[in-house]
Design a binder for these strands. Structure first.
Length: 368
DNA sequence: AATCGCGTCAACCGCGCGGAG
DNA sequence: CCTCCGCGCGGTTGACGCGAT
């Protein structure tokens, strides 16, 4: 037996609501409360179906509806929750007072989803995928690459807080990629990354960051020796900068792991790999956190990374890391965060946020 | 000025779940 | 149990506005 329609469709109005209809609905609900949606339109004198009335009320007329653009914090929360909950819009909406599931769904589909895709992030799995990366748009900013590669300090316009750009950042990704991605064994759906591509990518990230600085982030540079790691150092001195920038305690946290402090980022994570000086190319990938056969770091050998590709999908990688050792340094790069430490105990951290266009807020802290 | 293409978002539609009888 | 009903959810549609041509 088929389900009976919620109401008789004949003679019922569809389409946009008029001011008059809104008024009738609001007045009725204020007087009698909502619920009984099937009978509500008749009682309220509306030629609409109950479903339409409910939708109009919950998505538009409800007094606690919040209007206006989504804030940074709201967007960040949506991304985080979507990563955990998927397309459970009502569950996500429950965490955002005044926002409706419909509004969040629309905003996701029209803004966030596109932005993630453009950045090479799979909006379903929240994993980095280079095959989704809109290199053309990113490389547009590589017109500035030459400019960016020539300076060490951030231009004065961005240097108001005395923060200087870490020059080593310019070498970071290229070294790792050129050391690790020479294998021809690039599987299907995995895009090979050449040093040239990476050069452009690396510089364009920087260029994009410099030309589109998110209003809530800073370039940071801080010489901070890390001779000892005790509880009092967690979070480290720069963590407060990060947290305050995002004003969302969910967005990052710190964790001690032996001699190295790890900085994690919970919002959609990206793959920012940070090789250090003296890197000898001996890598070890840590795939423990990956729950599917597709992974970002493909390892043919327990101790060496032969391929570094972006897999077709990742299922819920809560965090992932790439660890490598060289004669002088130990580094761990996280998707979304990185921590470097050399033999002398100096550390550097790189964080990326996916809030704006291509990784929008890099936190570059400390250099030996 | 007219047309086209695209982005946005309110509204619709179909489906499924849970409760009542 | 089974059926019906009310409701909520998520996917999709289509009207509208705006910028580009």
């Amino acid at each position: 037996m088929g389900k009976s329609p919620c109401c008789d469709k004949d003679g019922l109005k569809k389409g946009p609501w008029t001011v008059e209809e809104d008024k009738k609905l609001v007045e009725y609900i204020q007087k009698h409360g909502h619920g009984k949606w099937r009978t509500l339109p008749k009682n309220a004198g509306l030629r609409r179906c109950g479903k339409s009335c409910r939708l109009r009320w919950t998505n538009y007329l409800r007094p606690d509806i919040k209007r206006g653009r989504f804030t940074f914090e709201e967007e960040e929360t949506i991304i985080q929750l979507h990563r955990v909950l998927g397309n459970k819009w009502s569950a996500i909406a429950a965490q955002l007072p005044g926002r409706t599931d419909n509004e969040i769904k629309n905003y996701w589909n029209t803004h966030i989803k596109k932005r993630l895709l453009k950045m090479g992030i799979d909006p379903v799995t929240h994993s980095p995928r280079l095959d989704l990366l809109d290199l053309s748009s990113i490389l547009t900013s590589s017109l500035h690459a030459h400019y960016c590669s020539q300076f060490i300090n951030v231009p004065s316009s961005l240097n108001t807080n005395g923060y200087a750009m870490n020059p080593d950042f310019l070498d970071l990704t290229t070294t790792l990629f050129s050391s690790s991605f020479k294998s021809p064994e690039v599987t299907q759906n995995v895009q090979e990354i050449t040093p040239e591509v990476l050069d452009q990518f690396q510089y364009s990230l920087l260029a994009n960051q410099l030309h589109n600085p998110p209003n809530n982030s800073h370039f940071l540079s801080e010489n901070r020796p890390m001779h000892s790691n005790n509880a009092s150092e967690i979070p480290p001195s720069n963590a407060s900068n990060f947290v305050s920038c995002h004003q969302n305690p969910m967005s990052s946290y710190w964790q001690a792991d032996g001699d190295i402090q790890h900085q994690y980022m919970n919002i959609a994570e990206t793959s920012v790999s940070v090789p250090n000086h003296g890197f000898d190319g001996s890598c070890r990938s840590n795939l423990d956190h990956f729950s599917s056969g597709h992974h970002v770091f493909q390892s043919n050998d327990a101790n060496k990374v032969q391929n570094f590709g972006l897999g077709s999908s990742l299922s819920s990688p809560m965090s992932s890391s790439l660890t490598w050792n060289s004669s002088s340094t130990t580094s761990t790069a996280y998707l979304g965060g990185c921590n470097n430490e050399d033999r002398d105990g100096h550390s550097s951290h790189i964080m990326s946020s996916l809030y704006d266009a291509a990784p929008s807020s890099f936190f570059v802290n400390g250099i030996m």
